[in-house]
Design a protein around this nucleic acid. Structure first.
Lengths: 218, 218
DNA sequence: GTCTATATTATGATAGAC
DNA sequence: GTCTATCATAATATAGAC
């Protein structure tokens, strides 16, 4: 076996371990927060020894940052791809379609909002890093998506970023609280029907009803 | 000093300690979740020894339940009082006013939603207790508040409880994420002006605009 | 009733075998 | 590169002084 091949295999193994650890860390941090999540539980979920964490990421916080990068990258790449695929479509329709995809994405990856909720409640060095690195660009992207789009939240006179927080809150709550939602309502919020119904409701909430609102106002 | 007086004083001291512990526990559990919060940090915040926790509540979980009772009682009593004070007022106005008060209450006590977000992400025995004991009655109260009220989210065809989750998400996100909100937007979401603007925006989002929506539909 | 001291377990990070 | 073993620290809960 040539040295080059052996090296590549070893490198691949290392990358796989790092990848598993980041994925496991994302779920654990999103569920239990930075303090509540243990590197042991993360390593166990990833199927490696606990000492693999400090080996690959030196500290728990570095692993946490890698997990943040991962989830924001997922959202950015998916939404950018969707937006690029809608070039030429009129602005209002494009925004609606991207928002529907956003709801589906939140349903598929509730970790983003859970992760943010764990860190957003206290002003820490981690939160400052998170806002500067990921939250601000994300809000700007979102602001540009909805700003000036005809029919979007028309007349509601608060700042666009504030509106984005309301939209994210309305769109994500059934998924961040999916187990509670299912227990209290007796229905799975992640079923295709419920996700589509929810996405539709979000659009109607922020755009108004497609037919009635233009025909009457009673 | 008579025995009765001494006993009463001692009992009062005990009640005060319990009370401080519940208040401190509520904040810590809301911020860090059950695993992330330590009884040491709770006791320190309450200004008592760590061993006062197992003495008064036997287990960490019993203290957690007392904290849950506390925050739900705050919301229930405040909202019931507001509703009772509006007897005779027409239904639509009454619902709007109670919702404005709800937003103010969420701003004042972000612990409720934070507490729920910490526990609602995983199906545990704690979550099942929480849903059966507090969430279901709370949702029912909320459902009755909005059900059949003229002009509320008219035409949006999803179940009322589902709508309540959207409303709670839109109303609470700026406060559950207050430190993130302030860092990313450069404005304090807890200032009186911002709270009132947010409450107004929530009303407009779910009721439509007060003037325009009845005059035109462009 | 509350404190200090402590038993026991679990945590994050390191060292050394392979 | 990954594992087992281990260190130092911090966790919950208990025991005993006052």
């Amino acid at each position: 076996m040539p040295t080059a091949t052996k090296t590549r295999t070893t490198q691949q193994r290392s990358l796989d371990t790092r990848d598993s650890l980041v994925g496991a860390a994302l779920r654990e941090f999103a569920k239990r927060g930075f303090d509540g999540a243990s590197t042991r539980a993360i390593a166990k979920r990833a199927g490696v020894a606990q000492s693999a964490v400090p080996y690959h990421f030196s500290t728990k916080e570095a692993l946490w940052r890698a997990a943040a990068d991962r989830i924001f990258d997922i959202f950015r790449s998916q939404l950018d791809a969707r937006l690029a695929g809608l070039e030429g479509v009129d602005e209002s329709t494009r925004t609606r379609l991207v928002l529907i995809d956003f709801v589906r994405l939140v349903a598929k990856h509730p970790e983003l909002h859970r992760f943010m909720l764990q860190e957003g409640v206290e002003r820490t060095a981690r939160l400052e890093w998170l806002v500067a690195t990921h939250v601000r660009p994300f809000l700007q992207w979102f602001r540009e998506l909805i700003l000036g789009v005809e029919g979007f939240a028309r007349g509601i006179s608060i700042r666009p970023d504030h509106l984005v927080y309301m939209l994210i809150g309305a769109a994500s709550t059934p998924y961040t609280l999916a187990p509670e939602f299912e227990l209290s309502m007796g229905e799975d919020p992640l079923s295709k029907e419920m996700v589509d119904a929810h996405a539709q409701a979000v659009i109607e909430l922020f755009f108004g009803l497609p037919e009635e609102s233009k025909e009457n106002g009673s």
